[in-house]
């Protein structure tokens, strides 16, 4: 039953990706900005402009361009980036891990921080500490990731220069990684000083991405915990002499976590979207930063590849979230 459900979701994912491919292809051809117009040299003749257009396959009709592109994508050929002059799939494989490491670190931070604030808020309910915590959380909720990024640049980059401002690794390090997962690989190869340097470079972007999500998690989880705390089974557990902290962590949390997981999944996709600006501000070499350059340069093959990568990532995250929700809620396994 579960296997069938997963297969059904995978089939839906393929259809969704196809839809994304169609939309992005059409949109890119409709929005202003001809990539060839940006490459024309001053003395170019109409013939050489036409040759340039043909070289990038932009001389055929739109349906034909789409078919050629789709056929190539189906065989794993995402084309060659116009601006970077490298195959798009290779670029994605190189840069996506940087974004994934950043995004997952931000997610872990958000879950830990948001969870802790939610538990603290629940424990402090009906005390003077509750509105204080709610107000602080509200402030964190109101500040978007890019504002956090700029504030962190000024605070931890300039005023108290503790963390590096830009990049993924200090240029003094040898970039001789076997995989593009620098942090993971450094830890696995026990290169702790390199791992520490990579982690230090991640601190500010992770904070910028993770703090708004932490505030959302805190608010939603606290609401669910408060609801759970007035249920009969909690009352029973309390009568058995269980401490407040154990009540929240062992009894209420298990029942309250379902909606939070679903919401975190949705918000995580927004967090990945937020990497575009945050990576730019911190000059972090992920796909978000690369996406901005691709758009500025009207690098159509790269933009198409990036959007498909983002689309696939969002679909995968939603699939995982659905599975997690089912795992945490046995009632949904047979529904």
């Amino acid at each position: 039953m579960i296997a069938f459900s997963i297969l059904k979701r995978l089939a839906m994912a393929a259809i969704t990706l196809f839809g994304v491919a169609v939309i992005v292809f059409v949109l890119l051809r409709v929005v202003p900005g001809d990539p060839i117009a940006m490459m024309i040299s001053p003395g170019a003749s109409p013939e050489s402009i036409a040759a340039l257009r043909a070289q990038y396959g932009l001389d055929a009709s739109l349906p034909m361009q789409f078919l050629v592109w789709l056929k190539a994508v189906a065989t794993g050929d995402f084309g060659t980036s116009i601006s970077l002059r490298r195959d798009v799939l290779g670029l994605l494989a190189e840069r996506l891990p940087a974004t994934l490491e950043l995004a997952f670190a931000a997610l872990v931070l958000a879950i830990l921080l948001g969870g802790a604030v939610a538990v603290a808020g629940t424990l402090l309910r009906r005390t003077p500490g509750e509105p204080v915590l709610d107000t602080i959380n509200g402030l964190f909720l109101a500040v978007p990731d890019f504002v956090w990024a700029l504030a962190l640049v000024l605070l931890l980059g300039v005023a108290f220069p503790v963390f590096p401002l830009s990049g993924r690794i200090d240029p003094v390090h040898q970039v001789d990684f076997a995989t593009p997962f620098y942090l993971l690989e450094s830890l696995l190869r026990l290169r702790f000083s390199t791992a520490a340097d990579i982690a230090a470079h991640m601190v500010m972007p992770v904070l910028a991405l993770g703090l708004p999500l932490a505030a959302i998690i805190a608010r939603v989880l606290k609401g669910a915990l408060m609801e759970a705390m007035v249920q009969d089974y909690i009352l029973l557990a309390r009568l058995k002499g269980m401490s407040s902290l154990r009540l929240v962590l062992q009894e209420a949390l298990r029942n309250a976590i379902g909606p939070t997981i679903a919401l975190t999944g949705v918000q995580f996709t927004f967090l990945i979207g937020g990497t575009v600006i945050v990576e730019r501000i911190f000059a972090y070499p992920g796909i978000g930063n690369m996406a901005i350059d691709a758009v500025i340069n009207r690098d159509l093959p790269l933009i198409q590849g990036l959007v498909l990568a983002f689309g696939a990532l969002f679909i995968l995250i939603n699939l995982l979230v659905d599975m997690l929700v089912v795992a945490f809620n046995p009632r949904l396994r047979h529904g």
Partner: peptide, 9 residues
């Protein structure tokens, strides 16, 4: 050393 979008040494 070169790290695209990050640095060139």
């Amino acid at each position: 050393a070169y790290e695209g979008n990050a640095f060139l040494r």
